[in-house]
Amino acid sequence: MGGYLYILECSDGTLYVGSTRNIANRMEQHMSGKGARYTSSRLPVRLVYCLECESVREAYMLERKLHGWSKAKRLALINNQFELLPGLARKRFR
């Protein structure tokens, strides 16, 4: 069974990353305030990115990876600016 990686933009401008087996049901949960504690206090939310994966496990592994990404890197992914991703992954040392 397939899965989905998704990113929501919350009303405060933050980005929430999640994974699910059924994106339509999950969006209903988020919009009703029952999706996650984080999003329930930041309604309304808007789906800004969705990627269909071969399995929910793959979607979850990608979710965990994106949790470590900066907002700038997530925005580059959302905006299909893939060429920016390597530069946004580099640590900046002073």
Rank of each mutant, 00 (worst) to 15 (best):
G2L: 02
G3C: 05
G3D: 00
G3N: 05
G3R: 10
L5A: 09
L5E: 02
Y6D: 03
I7L: 12
L8P: 04
L8S: 10
L8A: 09
E9S: 14
E9G: 12
C10T: 15
S11G: 05
S11F: 09
S11V: 15
D12S: 13
D12N: 15
D12K: 03
G13F: 04
G13C: 01
T14N: 11
T14K: 14
T14F: 07
L15M: 12
L15Q: 08
V17L: 11
G18N: 09
S19Y: 10
S19L: 01
S19F: 08
T20C: 15
R21M: 00
I23Y: 02
I23P: 03
A24C: 03
N25F: 02
R26I: 02
M27N: 07
M27S: 10
E28W: 07
Q29R: 14
Q29I: 00
Q29G: 04
M31P: 00
M31K: 15
S32P: 03
S32V: 00
K34A: 12
R37W: 05
Y38N: 02
T39E: 02
S40F: 07
S41R: 15
S41A: 12
S41L: 12
R42I: 13
R42A: 12
R42E: 01
L43N: 04
L43P: 09
P44R: 13
P44Q: 09
V45E: 01
R46S: 10
R46A: 08
R46C: 08
L47M: 09
V48N: 05
Y49Q: 06
Y49N: 06
C50D: 01
C50M: 09
L51A: 13
E52H: 14
C53P: 06
C53W: 08
E54W: 07
E54A: 13
E54G: 15
V56K: 14
V56M: 07
